[in-house]
Design a protein around this nucleic acid. Sequence first.
DNA 1: AAAATGTTATATGATCGCTATAACAGATAT
DNA 2: ATATCTGTTATAGCGATCATATAACATTTT
Lengths: 142, 142
Amino acid sequence: MIAITDITKDGVTMVLRIDFNSDEALYMQLRNQIILGIATGRIHEGDSLPSVRQLAEYVSINMHTVNKAYSVLREEGFVKLDRRKGAVVSLETNKQRVLEEMKREIAVDLAKGVCKGIQKEEVHRLVDEIYELFANWEESEE
Amino acid sequence: MIAITDITKDGVTMVLRIDFNSDEALYMQLRNQIILGIATGRIHEGDSLPSVRQLAEYVSINMHTVNKAYSVLREEGFVKLDRRKGAVVSLETNKQRVLEEMKREIAVDLAKGVCKGIQKEEVHRLVDEIYELFANWEESEE
DNA sequence: AAAATGTTATATGATCGCTATAACAGATAT
DNA sequence: ATATCTGTTATAGCGATCATATAACATTTT
């Protein structure tokens, strides 16, 4: 079962896909979708995300699950939670930290590739492909 | 608490680190360590890993936890489980599949970077750094 | 005043990770 | 050939995590 809805208060139609049969936690799916939304330019710095209660009703999940997703996004420096404006996209940037984090996250993934004979040039191409995907999202739409 | 032991039947001293306080599942830590062992050349194709009971005793964890790690490695095409030879490193290579898998795995990680202003050239450098780390492992040892 | 907001607290059921024990069939070793 | 070791399967229990359901409170918005 996949719930699809649009996000942000101001009618910015960003599709949000939630797979209830996935083994990935719902709050992590939410987190990932919002991060992807920012990376692909559908959500911008300063945008307000829907309130936890609104989004919970839209996606048909519990308020606390949305709240957890927002809390994670706050801890990771993607949004600021303001009582008056709700969850506002605010990108706290520390490139050094981000790169170290990314290194830890993708190390094992790259190791798998090395075992299977993937050259680093092929990884470069894959990275470019993903960056291309983010830049031209509206053209492909998935 | 971190258990350190060596792996493989033939006295190939590969250090194995298990962090019991980590939030990462023990069987996944085992899986990752073995994949890293292969990627860094400490474990080679054809090597036999210790039996599930041996490794379980070495690392002081349950037999079934090791068994699960081995099963995952089998499903992912890193080892073949033979009743006589035990778990033998055997790299089933399908570059297309591996690349598609890697794409799915690192997409969100890269999206996080994009949000924080990481250029793709910086990711390239990071990838090179990791590949360098794998190639010159014995010199750094960690 | 009324409604909506973020936040916190508590409780319940489901699932997952890890352990424990046991048993079986096939391979190896003494 | 007897005993040991192997991979595999089954069952059961404990603890943690995930998601849900209510409820309440202070603050802000309408």
